[in-house]
Simulated assay, not measured.
Amino acid sequence: MVGPTRPEFVLFGSSIVQMSYDRRGWGAILADIYSRRVLFLSLSPPADILLRGYLGWNSRRAVNVLDQIFPKDAAVKPSLVMVYFGGNDSMGPHPSGLGPHVPLPEYIENMRKIASHLKSLSDSTRIIFLSCPPVNEAVINENIRSGSFSEMIRTNELCKQYSEACIKLCQEINVTSVDLFTAVQRKDDWMNTCFIDGIHFSAEGSKIVVEEILKVLREADWKPSLHWKSMPIEFSEDSPYDIAAADGKTTFNPSSSTFYWEIQDDDTTTNIINLCIKT
């Protein structure tokens, strides 16, 4: 532990989560955005974004480790948990009986169990489910033909079924959701720009994920708000040790800046390119 205990934002899921810190991924962007944001000014340090992603996992495996990853007797309960399972569940069954496929009715019940467990942690723990995004079937099939994978059935029709089931469940049990299947397909040429391998998000795809998450956080009626612009900034006071401004008489306060990312949020764009800083 470094310094005081921080509020926890946990990303829980399969490889979409595990790889979210890679290639300017959506987890890394969120960690940057929230690196100086606190829940209560002078009462809490900035939020830590914790990665709990497991490549190849499905909802069945997730249910089996809920008590280990989210123990009910933990001293610190997460303020926000973002959950993604569905892509591997939605794969067609392998002839051998091996593989991550989970029948749709079981997937729904597994996601219900995950939501129930997370709700039981604390009245202040907020939950967001991310639905199954689309895939580039042509690229996936090319990988199969190249011998990278065994026989694998992964189609947009199956992704759509599991995505819709996740959204419907969230409406039923009052859990906030992000419809990634629809959001990704709003972008022109999404199949060629949003993925690195037909499945996992590229930098362009990750920006869509972040924009959708921030939209949900901005619109959610949560007290306190977990949207980054609504949260106070840690150590935000001006300092003579900040970088000198162009006028040579004042300093530039960088505390509200984010680095490297281009995020569309709340009808404004924060453009951070290379080492330039813009607020």
Rank of each mutant, 00 (worst) to 15 (best):
L214T: 00
L214Q: 00
L214W: 01
K215I: 06
V216T: 14
V216D: 09
L217V: 06
L217K: 05
R218P: 09
R218K: 15
R218V: 11
R218Q: 15
R218W: 14
E219C: 09
A220Y: 09
A220T: 14
D221G: 03
D221T: 12
D221F: 10
D221K: 13
D221A: 13
W222C: 08
W222L: 12
W222F: 15
K223I: 14
K223E: 15
P224D: 01
S225V: 01
S225L: 04
L226E: 03
L226K: 01
H227I: 09
H227G: 08
K229N: 07
K229D: 07
K229H: 12
K229P: 02
S230T: 09
M231K: 01
M231L: 07
M231I: 00
P232F: 00
P232N: 01
P232Q: 07
P232G: 02
I233S: 05
I233L: 14
E234M: 14
F235K: 10
F235R: 11
S236R: 11
S236A: 15
E237G: 09
E237R: 05
D238L: 10
D238E: 09
D238W: 09
D238A: 12
S239Q: 05
S239G: 06
P240C: 02
P240I: 05
P240S: 06
Y241D: 12
Y241W: 13
D242C: 11
I243H: 08
I243A: 13
I243L: 13
I243P: 00
I243W: 10
A244Q: 13
A245W: 09
A245I: 07
A246V: 13
D247H: 05
D247I: 08
D247G: 06
D247L: 09
G248M: 06
G248A: 06
T250M: 02
T250I: 05
T251P: 00
F252D: 10
F252N: 10
F252L: 11
N253E: 03
N253M: 06
N253C: 04
P254C: 02
S255R: 13
S255I: 07
S256I: 03
S256N: 13
S256H: 11
S256D: 13
S257H: 08
S257K: 04
T258L: 07
T258Q: 02
F259Y: 12
F259I: 06
Y260H: 07
Y260E: 07
W261V: 06
W261Q: 06
